[in-house]
Every structure is written in C-alpha cells, then in structure tokens.
Simulated scan of single mutants.
Amino acid sequence: MRPDAWHLTEDIDEFHARSADFLRSRPVLHNTPLTVMEKWRTRPGAFDPGSVLFGRLESQGGTRAIFYRPPTRRLTLTPLSPERADALAARLTRLGHTFSGVTADHHTAAAFAESWQRHTGATPTLRVRLHLYRLGTLTPPEPVPAGRGRLVGEQDHEHLVRWCREFAADVGEAVTVDAASWADTRFAEKRYTFWETPDGTPVSMAGVNPTVAGMVRVDPVYTPAHLRGRGYAGAVTVEVSRAALAAGAEEVVLYTNAANPTSNALYQRIGYVRVTDWAAYDFA
C-alpha cells in the first residue's frame, strides 16, 4: 500500500467534507467518531485549532478508514487490516508524531499497538476492553421497579455533576468533573434522565448523545453503589432507549466494560445485541 494513501490534516472542515459519507455509512461501528466530529464541528471552542490531527485512507476513489488524535494524544481508529495498521504506524513514526495510546475495535487496536511498539519501542498496555452493543428489540425488565423516568432539568445540575463525577471515578477516567469544568467535559453535551422512586428521589441516571446519522449512543448509565441490584439501571436505560426510538433514532448503541458481567447481562436482557469488541491501549 502506498504510504501517501493516508491524507493528514488539521482542518476539521476539510476532513469532514471528505470523510462524512464514509462515517455515516456504518453509524453503529463508527458511533464514536461520528459523535466526536459532531461535537467538535458544532460547539465553538470544543478544541484548540492545531491540537487535533485527522487522517483518512483513500483507496479506489473513496475513503476506507479514518483516524483522529485529540488533545489527549490518544489515537482513535476505524477498522484496519493488520497490514494497513502497520503502514499507518510507520507513516506516523516517520513524521515524528507521538501518542499516549490507541482506541479502536479490538483487532485494529491490537494490531496498531503491536506495530507502534515495533516502530517506536513504546510498550503498549491494555487499559480496558469494551463490548459494543446495538439495540435489537427493546424488552422492558420484569418486574419494573417502582417509580418513573424524568428528564433532568436545570434544578438538578448539581446532582447531575456529582453523579457524573462518581461515574468517572468508577470507570477510571482521569478527568475533573465539577461546576467549573463541566462545560469542557464529555458529559456536557448529553441529555439526561433520572429514574425516581415514587417519592421523587433520584436513584439512577442515563445520558444520551445527540442524534447523528440516525444513531444515538447511551452514555453514561450510573447507579450509586448502595442502590444497585434493584433494577434501576435497566429501567432508566429502557426509558432513554424508548425515548430515542420515539424521537426517530434508527440505531441505539452503548458500550460496556467487558469485565463487568452484571452490566453485560443486563443490557442483553433488555434487548441489546453485541456487535464487536473494542480495546484501549496505553503507550509507555
């Protein structure tokens, strides 16, 4: 493969114009770059120009793969063969780029991590393995816990920020989530729903990303530790999934930690079907 088949740019508008059709062609598999691109293009100040690198692989007159590197310097890739992953690693090494890690479908991430180590000597460490699910037939849990879903409003902001901070700590995200930093976090652009008990006490929450290419991603889902095991997470996930479908979403997706059998079993019970595995590697 010719190395110049990869076209690199720091111009998000140029990148979007040439890669949007490719990303929209597989909205489930491309859900992460779709939502990230939508945020960066529609929210002024979402990133500093020059801090992000984009790449697209052209072959036979069309885009076949893309990558982007945000300010965190963690590379995100769409699926690549091992040969193409190695060619990309070689190209980026020659250009002097450095990365803190890579996130992609499991096979692509593993192939790139191995190639990156071979070309640079950087030791990859698997940080987390994820399952990607898409909604099949929505199946509410039985029995449904007492209570109801309610959209989160401005009056709930302090409560929401606290729960997002607790969620980030639970999943090991190295981010600061408080009133001052909220607007710059990945949590800010989402719409949230609380599950409340009959007396109006919030006991669980679920967020959804804005719809893009007919696809909605559920993220995050969180129940405080002392309230788990009572069906609240399933109930609130059904609530936001049903609302997304009612609003016209063609696909509803979510990620789970592969090491958490409880959440994986829960989402399968309510109708989510596993699509593929994802992985995130850190580079020493």
Rank of each mutant, 00 (worst) to 15 (best):
E251H: 14
M37T: 05
A110T: 09
G55C: 01
V275T: 10
W116L: 00
A174I: 08
H159Y: 15
P202K: 00
Y255H: 12
R148I: 12
F15I: 04
L227M: 08
T139P: 03
Y281W: 03
D21Q: 11
P70M: 01
S204D: 02
A109T: 09
L57A: 04
A233C: 01
C164V: 11
P198T: 03
H16F: 13
T78N: 04
S25Q: 03
L138E: 01
L92Y: 07
P210D: 07
F99K: 07
A246I: 12
A206N: 05
A20L: 12
P143A: 01
F67K: 04
A279I: 07
G271Y: 09
T32D: 15
T139K: 13
V253G: 08
T137Q: 15
L151V: 15
V275Y: 08
A113G: 00
L88V: 02
N257K: 15
Y222F: 11
G101H: 01
V171P: 01
A104E: 01
E83P: 02
D178K: 02
V28Q: 06
V216G: 04
F167R: 00
R84V: 14
L57Y: 05
V212I: 14
T137L: 15
Q117P: 06
H7T: 13
T32W: 09
A188M: 02
M215K: 10
M215C: 14
R91G: 09
V252P: 06
A180N: 11
L227Q: 05
L53I: 06
R56H: 13
L151S: 13
F67Y: 05
T42Q: 10
A113H: 06
G248C: 08
F99L: 07
A90T: 13
V253C: 10
V161D: 03
D86L: 11
L75I: 01
A243F: 11
G136T: 02
T72V: 10
R217F: 03
T108P: 02
R84P: 08
T42V: 08
P44K: 02
D13L: 09
D178W: 01
H226W: 15
H30P: 15
P82H: 09
Y232K: 02
A265L: 15
T125N: 11
M215D: 12
T276P: 01
E58R: 08
P141A: 14
S181Y: 00
V238C: 10
V216L: 04
A146M: 05
P210M: 10
V171Y: 07
N257G: 12
Y222T: 06
A279D: 04
G62M: 13
G101K: 02
R186Y: 14
R148V: 11
Q60M: 14
V102Y: 03
Y232L: 05
V28G: 07
L160Y: 00
R228Q: 12
G153P: 00
R186C: 11
E250K: 13
Y133M: 09
G55P: 03
F22Q: 08
T139Q: 12
E83Y: 09
N31Y: 03
V28R: 05
F194A: 10
V275A: 06
H159T: 15
A89R: 05
P202I: 00
F47C: 03
D277T: 11
A249C: 07
A90C: 10
V171T: 04
P210Q: 14
R148Y: 15
W163F: 07
E166R: 10
A249V: 05
T223H: 01
S204A: 13
T103F: 06
V175I: 12
T176F: 02
H159G: 13
